[in-house]
Simulated scan of single mutants.
Amino acid sequence: MLVLTRKPGERILIGDDIVVTFLESRGDSIRIGIDAPSGVKIQRDEIVQAVTEANRAAVEVDSSAEDRIKAALGYLPPTAG
Rank of each mutant, 00 (worst) to 15 (best):
P78Y: 06
R26Q: 05
A50P: 00
M1L: 09
L76C: 02
S38H: 12
R56D: 14
T79K: 12
I42E: 00
A72Y: 13
Y75K: 02
K41P: 07
Y75P: 02
T79W: 00
R68Q: 10
P8R: 06
L13Y: 07
V48N: 03
L13P: 00
Q43A: 06
D62W: 00
G9P: 12
G74S: 04
G33A: 15
A54F: 04
G27N: 14
I34D: 09
G39V: 03
E66R: 14
L76E: 14
I18M: 08
Q49F: 04
D45L: 11
D35L: 10
K70G: 03
S64K: 15
E66Y: 10
G27P: 08
S25K: 15
P8F: 05
D62V: 01
S63K: 14
R31S: 14
A58R: 14
A80N: 03
D35I: 07
L23H: 01
A57N: 13
N55F: 07
E10I: 06
K70E: 12
T79H: 03
E24C: 12
V51N: 07
L4C: 07
G74R: 05
V48S: 10
A80L: 06
Q49V: 04
D28M: 04
Q43M: 03
E66V: 13
T5R: 13
P77S: 13
I14H: 04
D16V: 07
Y75E: 05
I18P: 03
K7Y: 06
D45E: 06
N55P: 00
E53S: 06
D45R: 06
R44T: 04
R6Q: 14
V48Y: 03
A54P: 03
T52R: 15
E60I: 13
A50G: 00
G9Q: 12
I34N: 10
V48D: 08
G81C: 01
T79D: 05
R68I: 02
T5Q: 11
V59G: 12
D17R: 10
I32E: 04
I47G: 02
A65G: 08
V20D: 11
L73N: 08
G9Y: 10
D62P: 00
V20P: 09
V3A: 15
P37Q: 04
D28A: 08
I34R: 11
R44L: 13
A50S: 02
D45F: 03
D62M: 00
I32R: 05
D35H: 07
K70V: 01
R6F: 09
S38Y: 07
D35K: 09
I30H: 05
D17H: 09
G81N: 09
N55K: 13
V51Y: 05
D35E: 14
A50T: 00
A50M: 00
E66S: 11
S25I: 02
V51Q: 11
E66D: 10
P37Y: 01
R26W: 00
I14C: 04
F22I: 06
P37L: 05
G15A: 05
M1G: 15
R44F: 08
A36T: 05
L13V: 11
D16I: 06
Q49P: 00
V3Y: 09
Q49M: 08
G74Y: 03
D17F: 04
A54E: 13
S64F: 10
